[in-house]
Design a protein around this nucleic acid. Structure first.
Lengths: 243, 243
DNA sequence: CGAGGGTTTGAAGTGCATCAAATAGTGTGG
DNA sequence: CCACACTATTTGATGCACTTCAAACCCTCG
C-alpha cells in the first residue's frame, strides 16, 4: 500500500489530489505484474480503469481492420495511460500492450472523474497535463510529416536521456530497435538503413543499443533542419501522462 | 457589441462563462476584417490574444527553416484558435493565416486565464474541449500514417456536411483543392490524381468543388478499411475550438 | 549446441514528390 | 462583352524514399 502511495505521489497530476481521494484511489488500486505481449485494453472498449506504470514499458497503438498498426507512443515507468475515459464517451482512445516485463497499477476512473468535478485545483492540473500532451502531439504530427527517416531517428535520439563524459555523449536506446522503428512509424529494415545513413552523415557511433558521439551538434543540425523549432526542442516523456 | 456577444455565445466553450467575464471579454474584443494571406500570428510568438472566426477561413500551420509547411488544420466560422497561451509557456503552438476574406474577433487571453482559475465550470468545459480536440489529433496521426492519398481524401469527404436528395448524396468542398491537398498533407498534383483514382474506385462524380454519388457506402468501405474505427467516425469541425 | 527472435543486407516494387507544361477558370480593366 | 493576366487544376515524365519480400547473420538463452 505504502509502495503504491509512493508511486502515485510521484505523478505530477496527482500532487493536487485531496487526501481522502488519494486514500480512496490507493484502496481501489491493484498492482499486477505482466509479461511481454499482455494486452491491457483494446481501442474503443468501455473504459472503467486507467493505469500507471510502476516499472517496464507499455505500447499504445491502434489497429486497422486489415491489421496495420499505428503506434501512438511507448511509455516508460511513471506514466499514466487510459485516463481519457474521464470525459464524455468513456472509451479507450487506443489499445495498450505490455512490451516488456512490467508492473502496472490499475485504478478506477470514476474516482478521477468525481475528483475532477469537485476539486478545482485538480481540474487545473489535469488541464495542464492535457496542454502538455497536446504540444507533444502537435510535434509528433509535424515530425511524421516533414522529417525523413534518418532525421526522425536523430530527433528521437536527441530527446532521450544523454550522458556526457570527457566530451563524449552517450545515449542508450530504451527498447529494442524494432520497437523504436514502430514508434517512429517506420519498418525495422528502414530503421536499420536510416541509422546507417545517420552514422555516415553525423559521425555517431553505434554499438547495439549504445550510441556515442563526440558532440551532439552535427546530429542536431542534421535532424533539426526539418523542424519548425530549434534544437533543444523539449524532452520526451516529461508530461507524466500520456494516453 | 451585441453582434460580438452573439458570436461569443455560439461557442460551446463560452457557455459556462460568468456574466461579468463575458462582459469583460466583449469590452476587450476587437473585430477585424482580413483578406487572404493575412498572417495573424507566428509560431512561438508570445501569445497575448486569441481569436474567434466570425466568418471565413483560417489556416493553422508550422514551417521549417527550409520553408516546408505542415498544415495543422483549416478552420471555419465559429472556431477558436490561439487559446493555448492560457497555459504555461504562453506561446502560439503554430502560425495562423487567413485564407479567404474573413471577419476575425480577437480577445485577450489573460481574461480567459483568470476565468479558468476562478470558475470551476469553465475549467471543466475547457477540459472537455481539450479532450475532444485530442481525439481529433489522435485520429489525425493515425490517418496520416495508415491511409494512402485516395483514402485520406475519401475519409475527408465522409466527414464533411452531406446533403441527400432522391438517394443522391452531394458534398461541397469547403475551400479550393490546393488547400484541401495541403490540409491532407499532400501535393496538389497528388490530390488531383488521387481524386481521379477515388472516382474510378468508388463511382463518385466530381464537378469542380461539387461531388455527388448514389450512395456513400462504396466510399465508406474503400476509405475506412484503412482505419481503426468503423464508418461514421465523427464529424470534422464540431469541437468548436481548435488551436 | 541449437532454436528463435532481433538485426542487417539485397533486390524489386509502390506511392508520392518534383519538375515541366498544358488546360481550365476567374477576375480585371478596357 | 472581350482580351489579358493570373491562379487553380490537370497531365505527363522522372526520381527518391520507404516498403515489401527474401535471405543471411548474429546474439542470447535455455
Amino acid at each position: 500500500m505504502d509502495e503504491i502511495r509512493k508511486v502515485l505521489l510521484s505523478v505530477p497530476l496527482f500532487k493536487s489530489l485531496q487526501e481522502d481521494t488519494l486514500e480512496n484511489l490507493i484502496r481501489s488500486a491493484s498492482l499486477n505484474t505482466h509479461t511481454k505481449k499482455k494486452i491491457l485494453f483494446i481501442h474503443e472498449e468501455k473504459a472503467e480503469r486507467f493505469f500507471l506504470i510502476k516499472s517496464g514499458w507499455v505500447k499504445l497503438f491502434r489497429e486497422t481492420l486489415e491489421g496495420d498498426q499505428a503506434v501512438i507512443d511507448i511509455l516508460p515507468q511513471g506514466h499514466l495511460f487510459g485516463e481519457m475515459s474521464v470525459f464524455e464517451g468513456g472509451v479507450y482512445p487506443y489499445s495498450a500492450e505490455v512490451v516488456d516485463k512490467s508492473e502496472i497499477i490499475s485504478l478506477p476512473t470514476n474516482i478521477l472523474k468525481s475528483e475532477m468535478e469537485k476539486n478545482h485545483d485538480f481540474a487545473l492540473a489535469f488541464l495542464d497535463v492535457m496542454a502538455k500532451y497536446r504540444n507533444r502531439q502537435d510535434n509528433e504530427i509535424e515530425h511524421r510529416v516533414i522529417q525523413n527517416a534518418p532525421q526522425r531517428i536523430g530527433c528521437f535520439l536527441l530527446r532521450l536521456e544523454k550522458e556526457e563524459k570527457d566530451g563524449i555523449v552517450r545515449i542508450h536506446l530504451p527498447y529494442d530497435k524494432t520497437l523504436v522503428a514502430a514508434r517512429l512509424g517506420m519498418q525495422p529494415e528502414t530503421f536499420s538503413r536510416a541509422l546507417s545513413k545517420l552514422k555516415k552523415e553525423t559521425g555517431i557511433r553505434v554499438q547495439g543499443a549504445y550510441i556515442e558521439m563526440d558532440s551532439i551538434d552535427p546530429l542536431a543540425s542534421y535532424s533539426c533542419i526539418a523542424c519548425s523549432s530549434e534544437f533543444p526542442c523539449g524532452d520526451l516523456g516529461k508530461t507524466g501522462c500520456s494516453s
